[in-house]
Design a protein around this nucleic acid. Sequence first.
RNA 1: GCCCCCGUAGCCCAACCGGUAGAGGCAGCCGACUUAAAAUCGGUCAAGUGCAGGUUCGAUCCCUGCCGGGGGCACCA
Length: 831
Amino acid sequence: MASETTDDGRYDFRALEARWLPVWMDTQPFRSGDPKDKRPTKYVLDMFPYPSGDLHMGHAEAYALGDVLARYWIQRGFNVLHPIGWDSFGLPAENAAIKRGVDPRAWTEDNIAQQRESMERYACSWDWDRVLATHRPEYYRWNQWIFTRLFEKGLAYRKPSMVNWCPSCQTVLANEQVVGGLCERCDTPVVKKKLTQWYFRVTDYADRLLDDLGTLEGKWPDKVLAMQRNWIGRSHGADVLFAIEGREEPITVYTTRPDTLFGATFMVVAADSDLAAELAEGADAATRKAFAEYVEGVKATSEIDRLSTEREKTGVFLQRYAINPVNGERLPIWASDYVLSDYGHGAIMAVPAHDQRDLDFALAMELPVRVVLDCRDEDGRPLPDPTVSRVATTGDGVLVNSGPIDGLAKADAIARITEILEKDGKGKTAKNYRLRDWLISRQRYWGTPIPIIHCEECGEVPVPDDQLPVVLPSSEGLDLKPKGTSPLGAADEWLATTCPECNRPARRDTDTMDTFVDSSWYFLRYLSPAKEDAPFDGVEARRWAPVDQYVGGVTHAILHLLYARFFTKVLFDLGMVGFEEPFTRLLNQGMVLMDGSAMSKSRGNLVRLSDQLDTYGVDAVRLTMVFAGPPEDDIDWADVSPAGSVKFLARGLRLAREVASEPNGSSAAGDAGLRAVTHRTVHDVTQLIEGFRFNVAVARVMELVNATRKAIDTGPGPSDPAVREASEAVAILLSLFAPYVAEEMWEALGHSCVARAGWPTVDEALLVQDTVTCVVQVQGKVRDRLEVPPGIGEEELRALALAAPGVVRSVGDGTVRKVIVRPPTLVNIVL
RNA sequence: GCCCCCGUAGCCCAACCGGUAGAGGCAGCCGACUUAAAAUCGGUCAAGUGCAGGUUCGAUCCCUGCCGGGGGCACCA
């Protein structure tokens, strides 16, 4: 005990950690699973980590922030569910296995054990009864179970398609995992490959995923809402049917600008589409050859090159013609790679005058340009002809050269022309989405096996529920090296099975699921992690879910959050949950940087969390994370001071040790000034925490510590009851940020278990101030200050202000024209 | 190219509904303690809010334009 404060006034955080951690591990003050617990519930969730090794600074920040909220709600009397676990399927385990020959399962379990130790030391209020790890069969069997439900509903399906392929990871990637044409994991340029893969039909939920974002307004960061909206990318327009010469079926084209239909001068189909190939068959030999060569070139183009906006437009004329449904004109049909095969219908009507891409193509191929919109600049002057300016006029305007819609403005013209098309059966309003279906199959080992059996007779047959889980076979004897096909294909014994329907020999599906499947519903598994007959318990779900507060990095703003929202809606439709949005409130923390950039070993600016913890202690590191600035801002570790945090914590601890009054007494007779500060601080900190303004809350606690220090040293002294009241408040407030020091303080103050102490009660009467400072301005400049009662009347204050010496001086013999009185804080005199 | 966010002391950051520009911390400086230094404790200095306009009795806050930084989307018809 005596050794816990060193001679120089710092404190011995090692001793505190060694002392309290075993106590907490023993008493488990954060158990949430008692069904008889009558406290209201709150679900606070931290994004679970991948067990890649030890914790890093980013984890430390996120968990410190989440813990502030969890501990706050506990102090407020809630039964808080605050679980943690591991997102433990994924490539690093597999890569370690390939590189060092270790078993992915053993590697993963070792890392989990190591991380768990660090997490325990970090002392977050996690309920250790609920831990889960997604690589364990008792978890991933429910991935398979949910997959089966999706399959039954037609929401999981297999189709051949051009997919994103990472040549380095040797696996397909979801759209969301391709960033700027590069693999988000290894930055290798992604190439296109035609493969048959499993998909989840997220696009069926596009409207709900988009529209329900409205219910999260004000509860999720605007930035994340914007990113999700952007990603789903819904647009409104029309599908228009174009008859094709020499082809039975018309071609449907999607456009957001049906009003410009009279300006269409050609049609373009996606070069890599089946449609283009079919149309090309009717062309002469030279064209067929040119087309074939063009398509080859397109396929060889990397995604990164394809996305370059600097690229010249290229294409091949297919010697075929479409008929414009509104005026019967013949439009030449071209194939080009600037039209995407998997958006809309893979074909467009080109209106070069009013679409920049079409204009670029028209100019490159010397195709006609026809203006059908009279567009004006701000001064009402006509905009230059697009052919000359090489700039398409894409804005609003009045229709010209457009028959029945001449003279109409854009919006009216769209409505009118759509009506006309609809009447003739040649078109209708339509929506489109940037969002694509979620490609979930991976040709890798360390993931959830897809629970499908391929039978020659019966086709794709889901593994019956009572045969789940399909357990991942041991990696022993399997070649895990990426080679483009799943390693599971070589697990002969595992592979061979019988068809559940016809009992004939059949083969298992050899792909594994994207690990984002695992994290799409884990928050539900925490509710009943040991449940053996369902993914989660319905009663527990009604009790706890949805998550009240989710905390994690903005890096998951699109992928994980979109998928989890999708899963939740599917589970809602299955009647398994009663809510459609999984995370009621979301807090995104910023990144921890060093010297202005993200930490990395290669950059040589890596700050090791364990070093920081060894040097400054857990509490100081946590406090530093929280105090550094607003939670969503990045923290530059070079700008902050864990040493300063140590100093502050030592000051707090010293207060508690100096308190000389007995516990549980009344503080009513205590020093009024200090009491006012204490109650004001608790009141303000309460609001600050609820508003995620933790940095300011910490500053307020620092003020309280300073005020208490003064009271002890130069005020009423250590035996005044107000000093005890203030110190106890400091201990409880600090318990959100610095659990070890708070616990030590609490004990010094004669109590035990600060985490469950309860939030201090604010005496409203003590918040009322006797006097406030009123500023008196003349012409907007401060000329005097008055001490006035807060309830002062307007007339009285006006009189006082006009008589104030500073006012009299600066008004001089000027005439007072107007007096603005805002009792009790301000008077402004206008001359 | 389009959309969003942010510019406040040397630094990280506060400032309620438009009403005293400063709460807290870091660094600096001064002092105390020390043989000395570190550490600690006490005190103290510090910007007129990126720039230019506008609205207002009054603007860090609202509006317009520009400059600087960050982020998202980007051949999605």
